[in-house]
């Protein structure tokens, strides 16, 4: 199709070179007779879309790193990972890979904490838009895992940091970055009733509910397998349901 449109082809090529930063506007504009200032305006707009989606999807990370460290990451991501998805956020998925490489190489001041923070923020987005349909209580026969649930293994306390930052209304004053290792199993999920995305650090009870629901165990079956009183398992399942980790049947009979 391009071959039959040589002048269009020239225009597409010249504009693309500027938008990708491969050519300065003055050079490309001269080739096709466009105003270099206006070409630069478009190039700025296209680059801004990259920055804006990264700032939106990784807003805590952007706040922690600050513009002086975040902007070089945006620029590098723009250069190495041209956007190729029509859904804007999808293009941000590989930003975590860049962060991990930077942390390994000690570049741009990125640390393992930043990588972990980005992972939590990204999973919050994926859970928010997850196409998984959470069943209604009337649709399940046994305690059932929330299908939007994502399980993360954290080491650097990114969840605690996010909690504190958000409790402070995400202001300019950042909570301290945890300086001690804090291994945590984090559940990220979309709550079945509120549809809000939340995360919760898994304790023994939640891990028990996760395994039992994964295995499709009713309250009585789980109680029998774990040699626990039925009331205890009921309480564990109910707590997990309150968090949204599992969906309980309408009739919660043992």
């Amino acid at each position: 199709m391009i071959g039959s449109n040589p002048r269009l082809d020239d225009a597409f090529g010249a504009v693309h070179a500027v938008l990708r930063g491969d050519q300065v506007p003055q050079t490309a504009a001269a080739q096709v007779g466009l105003d270099p200032v206006r070409m630069a305006f478009y190039a700025d707009a296209v680059y801004s879309h990259v920055r804006e989606v990264l700032e939106k999807d990784f807003c805590a990370l952007a706040a922690v790193l600050g513009p002086s460290r975040f902007e070089p990451l945006v620029r590098e991501y723009f250069e190495i990972r041209p956007f190729d998805a029509y859904e804007l956020n999808e293009n941000a998925a590989a930003f975590r890979d860049l962060l991990a490489r930077c942390a390994s190489a000690g570049r741009h001041g990125v640390t393992d904490f930043h990588v972990e923070l980005a992972e939590v923020e990204w999973q919050e987005f994926t859970v928010y838009v997850s196409p998984e349909v959470i069943p209604e209580p009337s649709q399940v026969q046994a305690p059932t895992l929330n299908p939007t649930l994502v399980i993360l293994q954290l080491d650097h306390g990114a969840n605690d940091f996010l909690d504190e930052w958000r409790d402070g209304a995400q202001g300019d004053v950042l909570p301290p970055i945890p300086d001690q290792p804090n291994p945590t199993t984090l559940f990220v999920l979309r709550h079945p009733e509120t549809e809000n995305v939340l995360f919760v650090a898994a304790d023994e009870a939640l891990l028990f509910a996760l395994k039992a629901a994964h295995d499709g165990l009713t309250v009585s079956a789980a109680a029998e397998e774990a040699a626990l009183p039925i009331q205890t398992v009921q309480s564990i399942y109910q707590s997990a349901a309150d968090w949204g980790v599992v969906v309980l049947p309408e009739e919660k009979n043992p």
């Binding site: 269009l8 225009a11 597409f12 504009v15 693309h16 938008l19 990708r20 478009y42 707009a45 296209v46 879309h49 041209p82 956007f83 190729d84 998805a85 029509y86 804007l88 293009n91």
Partner: peptide, 12 residues
Amino acid sequence: AFGVEYHDLLPL
């Protein structure tokens, strides 16, 4: 164009 989504509208 050329496999890249600009997420902006370019004139013809």
